[in-house]
Structure formats: structure tokens, C-alpha cells
Design a protein around this nucleic acid. Sequence first.
DNA 1: CAGAAATTGGTAATCGATTACCACACTCCC
DNA 2: GGGAGTGTGGTAATCGATTACCAATTTCTG
Lengths: 348, 348
Amino acid sequence: MGVTIHDVARAAGVSVASASRALSGRRKVTPEIAERVSRAAAELGYQPNAVAKALRDRTTGTIGMIVPGIGNPFFTTIVEAVEHQLQETGRDLLLCASQYRPDVEARRLETLLARRVDGLIISPCDIEASVPAVLNAARRVPLVQVDRHIEGGGADWVGVDDDSALAQAVEHVAAGGARSVTFVGSRLMNSSARSRLSGFERAAARAGVNATAPLLGEFTLEWGIEAGRLLLLDGATMPDAVVCGNDEIAVGLVRALRAGGVRVPDDMSVVGFDDVGHATMCDPPLTTVRQPVEEMAAEAVRLLGQVRVSDPRPAQRIAIAPRLVVRETSRPVAAGGANGTEMGRGTA
Amino acid sequence: MGVTIHDVARAAGVSVASASRALSGRRKVTPEIAERVSRAAAELGYQPNAVAKALRDRTTGTIGMIVPGIGNPFFTTIVEAVEHQLQETGRDLLLCASQYRPDVEARRLETLLARRVDGLIISPCDIEASVPAVLNAARRVPLVQVDRHIEGGGADWVGVDDDSALAQAVEHVAAGGARSVTFVGSRLMNSSARSRLSGFERAAARAGVNATAPLLGEFTLEWGIEAGRLLLLDGATMPDAVVCGNDEIAVGLVRALRAGGVRVPDDMSVVGFDDVGHATMCDPPLTTVRQPVEEMAAEAVRLLGQVRVSDPRPAQRIAIAPRLVVRETSRPVAAGGANGTEMGRGTA
DNA sequence: CAGAAATTGGTAATCGATTACCACACTCCC
DNA sequence: GGGAGTGTGGTAATCGATTACCAATTTCTG
């Protein structure tokens, strides 16, 4: 079916070596031969077989990527950004979803390694269960974690600076006058869930606000609605503000609160996390912390290029500071007075 | 770096042929040899090189997929569904985004062909400009179009039955009492935009409602907002209902209308299209036509398996009937009386 | 003009897994 | 016991592009 370089060489009346050299330009050939070869290649519609090239070069020009799920807009945004970065260097993306299951994740890692990808970008679904598969893969090929990571720091990581993120969110609602704040996030099975909660707790202490007991469930709209109902149940302990682990939770929470008669942001401020897609779709538009997705993707691809499996160096951890995007689900700073911020900072 | 089958054979004290046969089980070997080989493979951590296998077998076990953009939740939902289907048969997905540009699309097709994918699933970004690249690719490898397609029917296609979809949407709002209906969609550069508009016009005629001039822009939230403003501008000709080309447009439209004082659904019914993600996020939840995404993906993968490049057969076109999901942006049928529906049907 | 130096073309090995083909050993039956 | 038949192992070719190595030719220098 396919036209090979042998066909081109025969048509041009030269050897395969000359044909290869003429086409790749890696070594000089006489203009005469270059001309004949490129004409023959064009006429036959020759297209080099990337599989053969990969076998010979021991390089596929392909990067494998594994994310927990493509349904989650945050991950698709990262995938898109990574795809975009790889384009720049003419590489392709082999995409897999682990479906949030460590066993699926391990299997997908194996097939990507079998396909001899040149590198791996992964957001491990479980902070503990993903450890062996990820470390094993990292020993065989350059590997960078994005967003989520495994415990123990055995592999490079690029993500958002959760401490800075939560500090911005908490300081913002404190500046709007909030005295008590609740965190609504996910159960602590992945690194993001953990570091966002601890970032929240540190930020609350620093800002001098009262951090009420966190509500932990899933990173979903449904859990946001559920959490909203839980808050409504005992109105006595209702906080002045809620900071959420991601935007989907925040959107669900806002809807449940409004349905329950709580005015957002007048009665309660709500802050999300991610700022991909959902935030602007929401009504009112969501105040949220924007993940620096493009920067994370660029950094991950850059790191991949630096990793040398042969000489292990200390694992890098790159935390990029995010930016708070103030929209309409949080009380304006003016309302609570700039004084609140100063106080918050003062007690840190 | 890698352990080859030669290493395994040597360690087991047999020939590469025996090692290969023992591991693949394609031909009998004595239990003794089978045992020695599998033990050696396990000890060395042997993992077959998929690149070499692909070269020899002339089969990569990889399907290439090209969609206009991964940012659009509709496409990611399809990608996810296709990935899921391929899993079943142990194949992997090589994913590309054309960024809605025919030139990028053509380049990506070339690289996927060079990588010798076993098949292609594509949603061509432009009904005209995508034609040559798609037809050329279809000549070389099994190819199925999903959702969008090129004009002229030169390649298989799986998608939603836009006629049925628009009929359901129009009949629903007519049953709710609407007498005049407007279609807000995208400019006619892709097949979905075209067939949804024409489906709308046919359905309106059949239902006996007055189809006012359509508004055509982009498949985006922004265009939905813009279209809402346009409708508000001359309130005199305000329709009773609007049917949208996708959910993003619908969400934007609803927001603009409500901001302009129009009550949805009391003053105007709004129906979306797709029902992926956005619809339930919206407030109020969107009445919309649900794309049969899983079925489309399953059908596309099934078709891929049937295509034989060697003997061309007439291109298949599979249109799957969607289902209208009634939520809260459309007036309930009871309000307008079931009579409306009967009248609509009667005039068809 | 002889001989060294610089180009450039061709042959064949290489990457790793699979398998066609051959060879050998063993069983079975007349 | 010899010939047919069956089962199993090994050798080497194959997939297609690249390139190390060698050979041949041209160019340059004294």
C-alpha cells in the first residue's frame, strides 16, 4: 500500500542512501540528485513511515498524557494547553484517561511505555495508590506531574501554588468583612484536596478569621448542592463566606444557597477555584482563583525536556502563583472596609 | 535501556522464535520451555516494544482523532466516549485539535497518517475547505466522520438526526403556545450549522409556526449574549420562543434576556442543543436536545471496523435520533394546552 | 603530474518482534 | 523396519528508514 523510500530511490535512479540523504538534507548530495529525488518523491506521493523511523531512532516524537478524566473541564484545559505546547516542537500527544482509578492508570502507563513515548505528563488520580506505577514509569522515561501529584516527591511536579491561592481567597473575603469562613472541598485522596485544605487553614489563621469545620466530598456540582443544603440545615452556624475546592462545587453551592433564600454575595460570599469554563457560565459570575493553565503546561513541557532518566537529579517542584479573579459572588472589598484586610494581615 | 526478546531468549536458553512463541502462545511449545521463558521474562521485566511490533505487523493499534477544539465540551464528551469504546478493544487514541483551521487540520491528518494509525475519526472543521484533506486521508485508511462532515458524502458519517432534533424542539415550544420562533445559530461554515438551520425551517413550516429571520454568529456564549441584545433592541418583533444551535449560545441568550427584563420561560421559551455540561450548570436549568454521544461514539468505532480501504463501498450516513430534555427554560406544554401540538401537527 | 585531501555515492547493518521455512525427532501403521 | 505424518525448535528474512563504513571520484597542492 505505502510508498517506501526504496520506491523513491528506484524511481530517481539512485540508492536508498542517497534518497534518504536528499530528503533529510543531513548530508550533501549533488543538486542533480537532490532534484531527481524530490521530484520522484512528489510524484509518488512518498510519505516517510514514522513507525520505521521511530524504531531506528529509538524516539517516537510522542508524549503520553494521563489525566483522571476528560469530562472535567479543568483537565481538558490542561490537555489543550499541553497539546498546544507540543505542537511547537512537532510532537504529538497520546491521550489517556484513568477514570479516577489507580488500576486503570497503571495499565495505561504500561501501554504508553510499551509504545515508547518520549515522555509522560500525568496527573495521578490517587496520592497513595498511584505511587508505585508513577515511580516505576519515571525510572524508564522522563515524567512530569501536573496539578495532582503523588506523595513523597519522587518525581517532578508543576502545579498551582495552593498556599498563595487560598491566601488570596481568604484575604479577599476577609477584606469584604467576613469573620467566619468555611472550606468546601473534596475528600483527601489526592494532593490538590489536601494542599488546598491545609492552605485554607493556614490562610485563615494568618488572616485572623474563624475557620469553621470543612465540608469534604467530591469535586462535583452535586456535592456543591449537597454542601449548600448542609449549610442551610443549621443556619445558626452559617459562615460569612465559603471558599470552594473548585468551580463546580462553587456553582452548585451558589445554586443551593439561593434556592434556600440566602443572597449571594449579600448574605454570604462564595469563592471558587480553577476558572475554567464554568465560572463565567454561572449566574452571577463566580469570583474564583484562576489556575495558570498555560504556564503550567509550558513549564511541564519545558521540564520534560530537561529530565534525563540516566542521571537522576533531585525532583523539581514548581508551584506557580495564581491570580484571584473577582466577579460577583463575593462582597466588594469597599463594603467591609480596607481596614479588614489590614487587620487580617496584622494578625498573621 | 530496554530488555528485548533476545535477552529473554538468552536468559531462558532458547531461540528468539521459541521465546516469541511461548509469550504469544500462537504456536505450541513444550511446557518446559514455556515455563523457562515466562520466568525469564518476568525476572528481566521484559515489555515488548510496540513500535517494532507495529512495523512488523503493519498495524499500530492506534486510532487518530481530530476535533476542531478540545475547549468545547461537546467535543471532549465525544472524545471521552470514543476513548472509552477503543479501550474495549485494547486500542489507543492519538488526539489532535485542528483549532477550527483547515490548514492545521490538513497538517494533523498528514502526521497521523505518517504515524500509521489504523483508522481516523474526525469532525472536519469546515464543510468545504476540509474536503480534499479528508477525502485523501479516507483513501489511505478507514475514516469516519463524527458530528460535522464535509459536503458531498465521500466518507462515512455518524451524527445526530438534526431534522428530528429540531422537529422535537419546535414542536415542544409550539405545544407550549409559541406562535413565532427564532433560530439562533452559527454561520454556515460547517455541516451542523447548515443542517440545524434547515431542520429548523422545515420543522417550523410543518408545525405551522412563524419562523422569523435567523441570527447566525458563532457557537459561543458571547454570541448568545450578543444575540440576546439584538432581540431586545427591537422588542416589537420579539418571538415567543428561541431555538439555539447549541447550549453555549442558549446560556448566553438566557442571561442577556433576563438582564434585559425578559422572563424566561414566562415571556419567552429558550431551547438549547447538546446537553453536555453547561445545560445543568445554567440557572434556570436549560431545556435542550441531548446529543446521543455514547451511541455516536460506539457507532463510529463500529463503522471503523467495517471500512475496508481496498474495496470502496457507498459511504454510510448514520443519523441517530436525539431526545428532547425538558427542563425549566421552556413553558410547560400544559400552559399552552395540548391543542397547540395537535394544531401544529395538523398543518404539517 | 603524482599523490594527498575532500566529497559524495553505494552496500549493508541496525532497531525489535514476528514468522516462513527448514530440520530434526518422534509416533504410528502396514 | 521403513515410510508417512505430526509436533516442535532454530535460522534467517521481513517491516522501512537511517547511517557507519567503504569505495570511487574529484579537487587541490607542491
